[in-house]
Design a protein around this nucleic acid. Sequence first.
DNA 1: GGGGTGACGCGTC
DNA 2: CGACGCGCCACCC
Length: 114
Amino acid sequence: MQPSQPSTFELIYNVVKQIPKGTVATYGQVASLAGNKRWARVVGYALHANPDPEHIPCHRVVNREGAVSEVFAFGGGNRQVELLRAEGVKVTDKKVDLEKYRWKRMTMEMLEKE
DNA sequence: GGGGTGACGCGTC
DNA sequence: CGACGCGCCACCC
């Protein structure tokens, strides 16, 4: 039986919602936490859909370079930078120090999975 | 059921 | 860490 099987988007949104303030996560990281690292693309797609931007801090999600998407059309590319700075994350040229702000919730811990 | 697209990742040059 | 291409998966039409 499957009362309601969580869609991939749901899983992704769930992970993104768990991103702590002042921290950023990469699409790949979110994808890994969501279930599969190859969902990186799907993560982008999911955030694009972003049905609940109020609970889905898509601005805390950056690509592998720590840079925000230029096509960030959810309110203006610079808008995301402003939000990140407001969180205490220094953004340089739309890029953040992954080494400093990268969401280290469970780097190798996620390998064990839950 | 098939085709095209995409807010990515990584290897390679 | 400059650019290019392939792959990978899910969603929309």
